[in-house]
């Protein structure tokens, strides 16, 4: 098929960007979306032009490195799918496709579609861990955790940190990302001890990074590749309010 692509090109964070038009032929429906961009880049190299920079790595939907706004939606038209798992059979011959980076003040653009999501790392650094050092952990079965609690913790822990929640949020809030980690650790007995400090520090860091607030539109859950539930955000609020009341 033949496609018209409108792609955001921007040299650097400090420079202005703009949408640039490209025509691309010979796109097969079996291609993944990123392979379609590979093909575009191949033709750009042939013409001696700078390629479109974009983030990607595992291309199987788990590393969380890929992510772009495709036709105005995070990771494209399919719900709960990463950009790398989107295939061209979701488009048809003659389509115009708008491609932009994930946008948020806390995700500055590096170049073209590449963005800087290091804010997420700093949110985790603020408390998204259990303070267990290596070496002499207690026997694994000495901590009993019910099947349901483990599964619920897993549901939250499955977050891949792609940032689609932020990109799709009208407030550019990182609440889904942050709350998924808070729930994961707050559910487990190992993580409960630090729960109050964790939630306060992570919420503060989220603020410091410049992410917005959550107004519960629930759009993030729709776009999240791992279908992380928005109820984790309520859980984060619960933990935060509890800390507000109980924390010395």
């Amino acid at each position: 098929m033949r496609l018209k692509l409108k792609i955001w090109r921007q040299e650097a964070a400090t420079q202005p960007g703009a949408m640039v038009d490209y025509m691309l032929d010979d796109v097969s429906e079996h291609m993944s979306f990123l392979e379609m961009i590979d093909l575009l880049n191949e033709t750009l190299v042939g013409k001696g032009e700078r390629v479109v920079e974009f983030d990607h790595d595992c291309r199987e939907g788990i590393c969380g490195q890929c992510g772009m706004m495709i036709n105005g939606r995070a990771h494209g038209p399919l719900p709960n799918t990463t950009t790398c798992q989107l295939h061209m059979r979701s488009f048809k011959d003659g389509d115009t496709i708008y491609i932009e980076p994930f946008r948020a003040a806390a995700f500055p653009i590096v170049r073209d579609l590449k963005i800087d999501r290091s804010g997420f790392d700093r949110v985790i650094q603020a408390g998204g861990f259990i303070s267990a050092s290596t070496g002499q952990p207690p026997e694994a079965n000495s901590i009993l955790i019910s099947h349901d609690v483990t599964e619920a913790a897993f549901d939250a822990a499955a977050c891949i940190g792609c940032g689609a929640c932020v990109a799709t949020c009208k407030n550019s809030s990182a609440a889904l990302f942050t709350s998924a980690k808070i729930t994961h650790l707050a559910l487990l007995p190992q993580g409960k001890l630090e729960a109050a400090d964790r939630v306060v520090n992570m919420v503060d860091q989220m603020e410091a990074e410049g992410f917005g607030h959550c107004s519960n539109t629930e759009a993030c859950e729709v776009e999240c590749p791992q279908s992380i539930s928005v109820l984790h955000i309520a859980r984060m609020n619960f933990e935060y309010n509890k800390a507000l009341v109980m924390k010395p």
């Binding site: 861990f129 259990i130 267990a132 290596t134 952990p137 207690p138 026997e139 694994a140 901590i143 955790i145 019910s146 099947h147 483990t150 599964e151 913790a153 897993f154 822990a157 994961h184 650790l185 487990l188 190992q190 993580g191």
Partner: peptide, 13 residues
């Protein structure tokens, strides 16, 4: 396995 559990890895139970 002990180490991972201590860190909060949600292994199947």
């Amino acid at each position: 396995i002990d180490q991972a559990v201590a860190q909060g890895v949600p292994f199947a139970r």
